[in-house]
């Protein structure tokens, strides 16, 4: 059980690190996709199949595609490389900050009284999830729906070419 988790975790972390380090944008996105697949594998391991399903659908299916499109649409961006001293300074600061956060988090995890109860994953059927979403959490579901709608509309407005706006369309 733990061995499988270790393999999944190492693969996820490794590909995430490779994505963050890689020079090529496309390769980074590809490695991130691997990493997201690893997270989906973790969900499977933990017994949350439906979440794994959503993870694959949304991260591997949608977000990586959106990122790819963003890369393609911004292809002619000016040269990526910063002047070396500035980039190096930023990288060092970034690693220091991230290491600090990691240290704090790991310390907290190691020193918290976290008891494990229950050896089996809680049984959650898709039917049950559906009832919960439509019942107890219906309000939240509606809010998320509105949020997604507005976010998508906003994304369209942001990404649309401003030159083609008609003057009368302003609300």
């Amino acid at each position: 059980m733990s061995a499988a988790l270790a393999i999944v975790a190492l693969a996820t972390l490794g590909s995430a690190a490779a994505a963050m380090l890689g020079r090529s944008l496309l390769r980074s996105i590809f490695m991130l996709a691997v990493s997201w697949a690893g997270v989906a594998a973790f969900y499977m391991w933990a017994g949350a199949q439906f979440v794994a399903f959503a993870q694959v659908l949304i991260y591997l299916g949608a977000i990586s595609m959106v990122a790819l499109f963003a890369v393609l649409l911004t292809r002619q961006s000016r040269d990526e490389a910063s002047p070396p001293p500035a980039a190096l300074r930023r990288a060092i600061l970034a690693v220091v900050a991230a290491a600090g956060v990691a240290a704090v988090l790991l310390w907290a995890v190691a020193h918290s009284p976290l008891a494990v109860s229950g050896s089996l994953a809680p049984a959650t059927s898709v039917r049950q999830l559906g009832f919960d979403l439509m019942g107890r959490h219906a309000a939240a579901l509606l809010v998320v729906g509105v949020l997604l709608t507005i976010a998508l509309l906003g994304a369209v407005v942001l990404a649309a070419d401003g030159a083609q706006e008609r003057p009368g369309d302003e609300p």
């Binding site: 900050a97 991230a98 956060v101 240290a103 907290a108």
Partner: peptide, 17 residues
């Protein structure tokens, strides 16, 4: 923007400490 994020991270660590 990254400066802000960095400040956030450092601030988090300092607060916890």
């Amino acid at each position: 923007a990254q400066g802000y994020l960095r400040a956030l991270a450092v601030g988090f660590v300092v607060l916890v400490v």
